[in-house]
Every structure is written in structure tokens, then in C-alpha cells.
Nucleic acid binder design. Sequence first.
DNA 1: CTGTTAGCGCGTTCAA
DNA 2: TTGAACGCGCTAACAG
Lengths: 363, 363
Amino acid sequence: MVALPLMSGMPTIVDMPLPEHPRMSDVAARAGVSLSTVSRALRGASGVAPAVRAEVERAAAELGYVVSRGASSLVTGVTGRIAVLVPFLQPWFFGVALAGVSTRLRASGQDMLVYQVGDVDELDAYVRSLPLRSNVDAVIAVALDLGDTAVARLDEIGLPVVFCGRRVPGRACVFTDDTAAAAGATRHLLNLGHRRVAYVCSRDQTGFSWSSRDRLRGYEAAMAEAGAEAVVVTEPPGHQGGALAMARLLSMAEPPTAVFAESDDVAMGVLQVARRSGIDVPGDVSVMGFDDNDVAALLDLTTVAQPVTEMGERAAELAVRAVRAAGPVRDHVHLDTRLVVRQSTAVPRSRREGPAGGTEQRG
Amino acid sequence: MVALPLMSGMPTIVDMPLPEHPRMSDVAARAGVSLSTVSRALRGASGVAPAVRAEVERAAAELGYVVSRGASSLVTGVTGRIAVLVPFLQPWFFGVALAGVSTRLRASGQDMLVYQVGDVDELDAYVRSLPLRSNVDAVIAVALDLGDTAVARLDEIGLPVVFCGRRVPGRACVFTDDTAAAAGATRHLLNLGHRRVAYVCSRDQTGFSWSSRDRLRGYEAAMAEAGAEAVVVTEPPGHQGGALAMARLLSMAEPPTAVFAESDDVAMGVLQVARRSGIDVPGDVSVMGFDDNDVAALLDLTTVAQPVTEMGERAAELAVRAVRAAGPVRDHVHLDTRLVVRQSTAVPRSRREGPAGGTEQRG
DNA sequence: CTGTTAGCGCGTTCAA
DNA sequence: TTGAACGCGCTAACAG
């Protein structure tokens, strides 16, 4: 700050009352420069003398000034906000994915707007009303099937969309290969010596989810490949569905020796019924899940791990890139899954009691 | 629409190309009125002829026009956005709370901005930088201890704060009585006939959380009231901590016959170690949790249920009210907890094998 | 390198 | 009941 000769009693610039909601002009006055210089300095734009920039930053800090995004986005058209659409907020998967998105966005100073669009109507209402220019810069759809019309509408508006958790041809997306992962998991059970491997999948009113369908396909392929007969049980989602499914499986003439559940959540229901029925896992039946959520480790469930946090981060990364590029980004980010072998899968009893059989394993 | 005589080949209003990003003036032109009339009509302000209003709404719908929040908030100072601060995104509690907030905000057309502020620095950075005027209308802190300086800063800016999950004197907040709930849970165990009831609590680097402290207090009070000796084990949070704690308890000269864990998550670790050690629950030891998360039901864990969704909804309600009132709201919303008795707690073996003892129970 | 000017899209005075 | 003018706080062109 420049030292000035002052008459005593005269209010100095330091004595001036701090405005409650300082604006850029307050900073400009305090730093003794013009508005545009403040704007440039605070934005980190080039063409500002280092000394001036420092002075401006000091003035801003002293006033507790922060640029109003609303005002600047009115001019630039960039809001600094990214919308994340999720079908649910409660399940483990979405919390983890959001954490990933949040981390990445923080790094570039973007804000995260979260919308829960449980049903098609909500999605529709969202797409219809919200994403008008000057509300968000991009949309990340997590484990969500935006319809064609919704996507078309976003395109029309010029809003980049990133799909997280699903492969969408011609679109920016981050995904894992559910089919291959499910096939790998099924092979793990087959390689242990199981032949009667059942698959539990879930469907709600809306029908199968795509990841559900993809996993089923992988299971069927692996079974066919091994010449084993596929046994598929369909119930509502969640562990309730898993419990119902396991009950049905246990009432079959020849119950399976291994159960592959579409998700860890469903597997929990399977395990619960097994435990209550006095059926030993993996002694009597092997159980395999999918997701590797936090409870899976707790219950020693063999499962397929997805890098969910990373999926969120990468999706956010694509969204940020699309905003910067001011145009659509079409990258496909394919992340790997990982088979996590724990205590819930083992060689079937028939094998153990017969001639000693090795426990092979393939990816 | 008014039918007009047209020369053929002359472009009609219907033929006019739809602007990609229609603005209010486009609507005004299409409806044949002025800008201010459109503004009034679309905002539902009074003083617009019904016929004119209908015409404006039609024009807006045909153009796919939506008011730009950015522009209007520049004038009104209201953003239509509410910030939700959470320490974590992954745990069950936060997903459920966010779902509650989301539901309530949707009803009033507000958007939800989510910030993960895991450590004090992040919180500080957030409070320092973001909530300047024209970014959000209110802040909801979920299970978070904003420091005094942070709160003071928000006050200064005039941003309403709502605390969710904690009682804060003189502030708008939604909470449950952790102390009373923990005391009730402890009494449940005492009433079953347990005397050696251990409490497992968690602390991380930061120290005890307040809910942790409150619950501990309730446990201690109930034990003292019954003339029983308190046994408290402290470990890191999460089920790992629970597992460590249970291991320590099992190595005591006289292990407890009942374990009350600070949270369901911690209780999971306790159950895991019990199961692996061949200790029957509740045969050998009763286990009680706190939260009633989705896994608790699955594992038949007796626990204390909190109305988490409702907490989120009510917090959002207070935030919306504060925005409407354009001033601070100081309501305290006290919600009840509920003891959920499942299969993990029972009369201790000593009682069962001795003279028949009844299973009493108090709230 | 810096200052001046003209809007960004809308709500809100006023006057009609 | 409607319309015209002004300004919300800021950035982007220019000119200096």
C-alpha cells in the first residue's frame, strides 16, 4: 500500500467501513485501479503488472471480496457448475461416485449440482426445465438411461453430456465391461468345479437395467462356453429380492452349488437366507456378488470390484474438458474390473469329498 | 393464437425459426407484448390480464423458453440454490439425508449444491470463497461442526445456516437426542439382565465427534443409574474399529455379555469378530448398534433408528423458510429416535440358565 | 499494460 | 393493466 501524508482525524482508506457485500468497484477503489484491471487480475488473465496484481489481490482479500459467479456467467456464459443426475442417492454406489465427481470438480473450482431423478417423469421434468443456458455447463448422468429425446434436447441446447457407468456409442462415457466381468466371475465358479451355477438378477417395474442385462449376458455366455445349463432367477432388486431368489433356489429338485448374484446387495439377501437355513457358505453353496461395496468385505463375500470413485473422477474430468473445449467430447474411458476372491466361494463339496481337485482360477 | 389473413408464401409467425437460446424478448415478440409483461406473467406476478398471461405462457412453451436464473438472480439476489455441506459422501447416512433434502427442494424448485468438506481446511476454503452473495441462498450443514468463525462469516454475509443432525442453541437445526437414545439403548440391555455392558466408541485424528460424545454420555448415565460399571473401548471409526474393539473386549478377564456400539458400522465389526471367533450372538453376547442403516436389518442387528430422511427434509424446509423470510430462522426441530429390537440382543446366558427371568423392556 | 465503453438477460421502478 | 427506461455486477471489446 502507498503511504500518503494524512491530516489527522481525516478518515483514511484503512478506516473506511468495509462494505457488507463488496463488489468489484470497491476493490478497484481500494487498489486504486480500474474495474477491468481488477477483473483481469482476479481472473488470472495475462497482461497485468505483477505489482498491480498483487495490490488488487490484497485489496480483495482485505475486503473479503469474491467474484460473483452469477454476474460473470451472465457475460461469459460459463456458470462454473456441473449437474450430476442420479436415479437414487442412498445406495452405496452413488455416494462413492459422487465423491469421485466432487473431488475432481473441486480441483478445478467447479460446483456440483445434484439431481435425483428417480423416475422417467422426473428426468423429463429436469431435462425440460433446467438446463437452459446459464444454469450449468455440463451434465453427468450416473448409471442412468437418459432417453433419446432427453439427449436430443441437451444437444440442442449445446450442453455436453457425460455418461458414467454406461457405454454409449458416440458419446463421452466412463464404463466397465459388465458382460466380460460377469463372464469372468462365472468362470471363477466353473473353474472351482461348480456345474450348477445359478444367476440371480433383479428387475423392477421399469424392467431390467442395462447393467443387469449385460451381466446376465456374460453369465450366459460363460455357462454356454462350459456346456453348463444356465439357471436364472429374477426377483425385485435389493436384498429382499436376493432372499426371495435364494428361497426359490433352495426349493429346486437339484439346488445349485453356487449362486452368482447380480450385485452385492442381492448377494446379501442370498447369504441371509442361507444363514437362516443353516446352509454353510461356502461349504454347501458358494456365493458371489458384484460391486465390492463396503459390506462385501465385512461379510467375506467374493465379488467383482468396480473402480467407482475413479469412474466418478473420470466422468468429471470429461465434463470439465468438454466445458473447456466449448464443444462435445466423445472419449470412451474403459475401466477395468477386478475379481476379489474372499471366503464365500470354494470348491464344491462333491469335489472336495471325491478325488482331490485343484482350484484353478482365470481372470 | 389470433388468426390473421396472410399472403401465401409470406413467412408467418409460426414459420419463424425458433431461436436456439430463446430469451425473454423472443417470447415478448411472439406473444406481441412487452418484456415486462412477459416477466410478470412468467413469474406469476399479479396485474396481468388472464388472456395475456395465457398467451405469454403459450409463446414461452412453444419456444421452449425457460427464465435464466443467472440473469434474474442478478436482479433479485435470489439464486434458487441451496448448498449442502457434508463431511463425507459415501456413508449411508449422508446419502439418505441428501435424498431428504433433495426431495424437499425439488418441491419448491430449488437446486441442491453439494460440497464435500472432509477436513477443516476444506471447510474453511469453502466458507471463505463460495457463499458470497449470488451463489447460494442458504447453507445446510449435515452432521458437521462449522466452527465459530465460519458461522460468523456466514452471518456477516447474511446467509442463513441450518444445522442438520446437531442441536445448536440459537440456530436453526434439526436433530435427535443422542444422549437420551443411547441411554435408552443401554437400558434395554440392562433390562434384559446384562450387567457387564461395554460401549464401543470411535475417534479419529480430529477427536470424538459430538454425536459420539453425546451417545457416550447417555451410556454412562444409564450405567450409573443402574449401578453398573461402565466399560468404554475407543478405536478408530468404521467396522475396522469395531473389530479391534471387540478383539480387545474378548481378551478381558471378564468379557462383557453385551456390547453397545456407537454406530451400526462399528457394530458390524463387532459382529464380524464374534462370528469368526465362534461366539454366538446373542447367545454368548448381545450386540446393539445405532443408526438402523440398511445392513442392520440384514444382519438382524438391534439398533436405534433415526429418521434420517425426515431430518434432511426438515432441514431443507427450514432453509427454504429462511430464504423466503429473507432473514434468519431459529427453529429447533427435535425428532424422535426409535429402538428397533431384532435378534442380536437377548437375555444373557447366566440368566437363562439360572432361574427363569422375564425380559422386561423400557423405552 | 491500463482505462473506457457497451452490453450479458432480466426485474423493477416509473409513467402512461 | 401495460410499456419504457434503468441498473443488478461483471467481462469483452476497444482505445489509449
